[in-house]
Each structure stands twice: as structure tokens, then as C-alpha cells.
Design a protein around this nucleic acid. Structure first.
Lengths: 352, 352
DNA sequence: TTGAAAGCGTTACCAC
DNA sequence: GTGGTAACGCTTTCAA
């Protein structure tokens, strides 16, 4: 008999088999099984016996025990601040998370995903429990709040990657990955200049967000220093949602001189603006030109197709995985600041 | 001094504080701290000392140790079979996962997300490692393969929720949640009959998928038993992607008599079909009517807006969480089969 | 109410 | 190559 108490009959599989069970079945010691499982050299004959026992008992290592023993986790957490409960529905986020998840899966890491309303960011249970080897975060809200959140994250201890921020990484355990939204705004600005627009409205959500700041700034940089005076204004919608954007754009078109161009802070906002123009009887691009940011899905389904600045969201996720795993393995980040390029993609909505 | 070896100076916070550290700092036993942490009654004075020590050392319970001791996990895994690497980008999936994640977060469970190509389903590391209290799966592929996968999942042991299947749950640890796609197809079929169409093409991806089977069957049920003979055909695109759908629809329109109606297996396919009609010079809905399934985002951005069957994806995720946690806590599923209703939403694309 | 001891399943470290 | 032993941090059990 075993030297250990057993909770179950030897062949019942209601509870999971342990190393001990396998060792018993194979007539070897626990360490031999452990060695085999982890690929250490084992004599051919022993190996066969152990393999059989493992198959028979359907043994799988207990991750908690392993984590406890090694004091290391094999999961990464990502916390996403978003006011929409369906936080993964945003195409930027869904692509980023997909890229991260795939990268981690290939390395046998697990990804824990949690969405959280912007006000409750610090309460996220992933942050409170802190059961991951590393963390990712997508923040939102005004800059000072984001800075506070970043400071709190940094103090948590594990390696952290934050997306879409312009800050300098505040500590050695923090890296920041972003796309070059400033350049994106500028590229789009240049393109707008070529279409000879004189007045441009940037439609954005009221809730602040780093990428949006940058996009606006990029546009302003170019349009502000143009040879001719260009009227550049910003319109804040209550949210990114279709209805909210439609409401504000329709209002804007109804009163006073309509702009020559409307730029949405995201494609979904641009598309809402485009529909609003249409409903108000303004033809796009003949009467008004429209453009957006992201270049994921919607741009091609509208009529006309949408000019947009294409975002490398999936790659940002993959990059984050790479950086974090590197940091876990080598003790330091290969880079603390990564900026990925964006690309202007011209559609029919700005064709003059 | 402590009776135990310490790896670090008492005030270094490079490694995480343990119960032992806190007990020491507070001058009480480990058990007192443990009791306090878990909300057991503790004398007011002791409590205060413990609270201070916890704050000072920034103590957080070690999840692995707790899991090991209790032999229970506090995470749920979801494995999603999808041929697109950006597997979360599908609006059905992103909503479902969001709903599940939010429900679990509220109960202090964590959600591990992994996408996997359909051929590699069984290799998913989440399945191999089996480190979760429960699992969810979204399968795809032909029925016989899905049935095999389901059988393998069931044998894994932990409670499982599978989405969008028509099978009877094969074991007590499996529940199936689906939306009523059959009814959705039928609702849409009835609507098409009212528009007096005589020929309908259903555009679907080559890769089989339970919901799509059902949608097709529902349509066929209604259109096949109509008073007048209706020509109902299916067109398989290489994938759900825009280009693939556009290619096949354009081909179809080019040769022979075009259909009166095109139904996409999903909204994104319907929208691609709609654009293809437009490019081929067929006006929608005047020349051809178009409809889809899902009702998430795109339906309202096309011109005309799309008729679609609205899917309760977010609620399916929430439901899955409810069922799984119930099963974990009570030892059995409250229900093993849940079918949520869908709703036909009529847009401009079928207005005659 | 508090404390001491045992053990959850695993691996590092040594012996053999 | 193989195996015994002692932790990893926690909670259950039982005694004070």
C-alpha cells in the first residue's frame, strides 16, 4: 500500500491523478515521474512504464502546486477600461487582445481578460488579486487620471505593458506600446489639405483617451500651419455610440455653415457621421468629405468607402506579449517604449 | 527571530509578503491573520494590529497556495475555434466573451481566453493543462467533428458549457447554450415571403458551423413549404471574409438570372453581398433584397440599412457564467440546455 | 478567540 | 538515473 493517505480508489477518476498516483502505478518514485514529465533524461524502460501509467490515469500536472513550488505564474492578465460593457466589441481592443492571446498561447501562457468601467479601474479584481506573472492595461480618461492609474500599476510589482500612452515609462517594470497616432493625424491632415478643404470638424467622444488626443493634435498641427486659414473645430459626442454621434453631427449640419470635412476619432464615429450627412441630404464626398481612424472593418461597407488611418492593433498585442515574456525571462524589458507606424488608406469618402 | 527561514529582509518588498510575514509583524499567529483575511471573527484589538501589518507589507494572498490547499480553482477558461487569428474580432464572439468575463469578474473569477484554429482544437493549451474550474467552448466545423470535440471535452472532467450546438448534452458535466437560429431563419423566411420573392440565395462560408446550419434550415423550412414554388439555393464562399463573399456574389450576379433575394449567413457576409450588388449595378432593395444575421453593428452603417436577425450574444455569455458557477457551487447544472430567443429586425434592405 | 501541526502536489537539492 | 526529504503559502482540524 501507499505510504500516503489516498482520497479515492486507485482507478476512480473523479479526482485528478497526482504524481504520487502515477509513481505508484508505475512502481517508481515520485521524482522519476516528475523528471520524466519535465523532459529530464530517464532510462528507456522506466520511461515506458511511466508513460503507460500517465496515460492510464490521465495524469496532468497541477498548475497551482507547480506555481506555488516555483513561485512563478504562467498567466498574464489584461485589464481594459471601457464604458461599454461589451468591452471586447471595440475592433481595436478585440484585435489587440487576439494578438496578445495568440502570442501567449504559443508559449504556454494563459491570458486572463477583464473589462472594467473607467471609474472603477483600480478595483479590477485582476489587479487586486495579483495572480499573474505580468499585466497589460488599456487606460482611458483624462491624462491626469491615466497618469495616476499608471503610477498605481507600477507599484503593483509585476511587469506591466500599457497601451496607447505618451508618457515616459515611469519605472523599470513598465513598458509602453503605442501606435503613432500623432503621425496618423498628420498624414490625414496632409491629405485633407490636398482636397482643399477650408473647414474641418473633428468628432470625438467626450471621454478622453490618449489616442484621440494625439489624432486631434496631429490634425491640428498640419491644418493650423497651412498656407490658407483653415477652420478646425472639435465636436464632443456623449460617447462613441452611433446615436450619440448622429445626434451631434445632425445638429451641427442643421445650424450654420456646414464644414467641408468631418473627421471621426474612430471609424465607427466617422461612419455615423457619414450616415448623418446622407440623412441631412449632403452628399459625400461631393458636399462634405469624411474620414476616420482604425481601418478595420467598416471602412469598406459604407457607400462611399471610408478614408481611414490603419492601426496595427493585432501587432501591438503580439508585441506586448513578446516584451512581457522577454522581461519575465531576462529580468528586463528589451525596450520600454515601442511606437508602431500607422498608414493612411484613402477611400472614396475623400475623393474630390 | 522567526522559526522559519526567511528569504529576505523584513521590509524588502521585492518578493511578496506571506501570511507568516504579516503574523510576525503583527505579533500574532498565522491563523489569526488567515482568519481575519477570510472575514472570520477576530477581536477588535487584534484586528487592528493585523490590518496595519497587512497594509504595511502590502500583503496579498497567494492564489496558487490557496488553490492548492482547497483543491479548487477560481478561473474559467474559454476556447474559441476560429480560422481568423483575430478570433475576438467576430462581433458574436466578442460580445459573448464580454458577457462571460463581466459575469465572472463580479464573482471574483478570472476568465482565460484562448483562440485556436479549427484543426488544432484539441491541442489548445487551456484544454491540455486543465487549470480551470470550468470551461467554455465555441466549436466549428462539420457536425461529426464537433461531436467528437464535444465528447473529448466531456471526458476532461470539469463542468463545460458549449455554445451554439443542437446536440443533446452528452453528460452531466456538459451544458449547451444556444440561440434559436432555427426560429431566426424561419422568421426571416416569413418576412421574405411577404416581399414576394421567388428566388433566394443563402451565402455561407464553406466552413460549417452549427448556427449556420440552423439558419439555413429555418429559411428552407419556410421557403420550401410556401404556396408558390421558391427557388432556394446555397452559395458557399471560401470564408466569411469580405473579398471571398464579394467574389462569389459578383460571379453569381454576372451569370444567369440574378436572385430576388440574397441572405448572408452573418451580417458581415450580407453586407459584402450588398456592396457587390451595388457594384454590379443592382439597386438594393429595388432590384434585389438583402438580409443577414446578428444585428450587431454593421446593419445600420450600410445604405440601405440591413434587415437582420438579432442575436443575444452578450446574454449567452452571461448565462454561461451563471450556469457554470452554479454548477461549481451546487454540484449540478440548473439547466443543461438553454435556448435564447432571437428577433427579426427589419431594415431598408428588404423594403419593397 | 487563538495557536500548533499536518498536508494540498510539486520541484530543488542531495544522496545513492 | 533514481529516490528521499524538505519546503512553497495556505486552510482544515483539533487542542488550549
Amino acid at each position: 500500500m501507499s505510504t500516503r493517505r489516498r482520497r479515492r480508489g486507485s482507478d476512480m477518476n473523479s479526482a485528478r491523478a497526482t504524481l504520487n498516483d502515477v509513481a505508484h502505478k508505475a512502481g517508481v518514485s515520485v521524482m522519476t515521474v516528475s523528471n520524466f514529465v519535465r523532459g529530464k533524461p530517464v532510462r528507456a524502460k522506466t520511461k515506458k512504464r511511466v508513460e503507460e501509467a500517465i496515460a492510464l490515469l490521465n495524469y496532468r500536472p497541477n498548475r497551482s502546486a507547480r506555481s506555488l513550488r516555483l513561485s512563478e505564474e504562467s498567466s498574464v492578465g489584461i485589464v481594459i477600461a471601457d464604458s461599454d460593457p461589451a468591452f471586447l466589441n471595440d475592433p481595436f481592443i478585440s484585435r489587440l487582445v487576439s494578438g496578445l492571446s495568440n502570442y501567449l498561447s504559443n508559449l504556454d501562457y494563459t491570458l486572463d481578460v477583464q473589462g472594467v468601467t473607467p471609474e472603477r479601474f483600480s478595483d479590477a479584481t485582476i489587479l487586486a488579486k495579483l495572480g499573474n506573472a505580468a499585466l497589460c492595461a488599456i487606460l482611458c480618461g483624462p491624462r491626469s487620471i491615466r497618469r495616476d492609474h499608471l503610477a498605481n500599476l507600477q507599484r503593483l510589482g509585476p511587469p506591466i505593458v500599457v497601451f496607447q500612452e505618451v508618457f515616459k515609462p515611469p519605472a523599470a517594470n513598465v513598458a509602453i506600446i503605442s501606435q503613432d497616432d500623432l503621425s496618423g493625424g498628420m498624414q490625414l491632415g496632409e491629405h485633407l489639405l490636398e482636397t482643399k478643404v477650408r473647414s474641418v470638424i473633428f468628432v470625438r467622444p467626450a471621454l478622453d483617451w490618449c489616442a484621440i488626443e494625439q489624432r486631434e493634435r496631429g490634425l491640428r498641427n498640419i491644418l493650423g500651419q497651412a498656407g490658407v486659414a483653415i477652420d478646425f473645430r472639435t465636436l464632443s459626442a456623449a460617447s462613441e455610440r452611433f446615436d450619440d454621434v448622429q445626434r451631434i453631427v445632425t445638429d451641427c449640419l442643421a445650424k450654420g455653415a456646414p464644414p467641408d470635412a468631418i473627421v471621426g476619432a474612430t471609424d465607427s464615429m466617422a461612419v455615423a457621421a457619414l450616415k448623418s450627412c446622407e440623412l441631412a441630404g449632403r452628399r459625400v464626398p461631393r458636399d462634405i468629405i469624411v474620414a476616420g481612424f482604425n481601418g478595420f472593418d467598416v471602412w469598406r461597407v459604407t457607400t462611399p468607402t471610408l478614408t481611414t488611418v490603419v492601426s496595427p492593433a493585432y501587432e501591438m498585442g503580439r508585441h506586448a506579449g513578446e516584451l512581457l515574456i522577454g522581461r519575465i525571462q531576462n529580468g528586463e524589458f528589451a525596450r520600454r517604449r515601442v511606437v508602431l507606424p500607422v498608414r493612411l488608406q484613402i477611400g472614396e469618402s475623400t475623393a474630390r
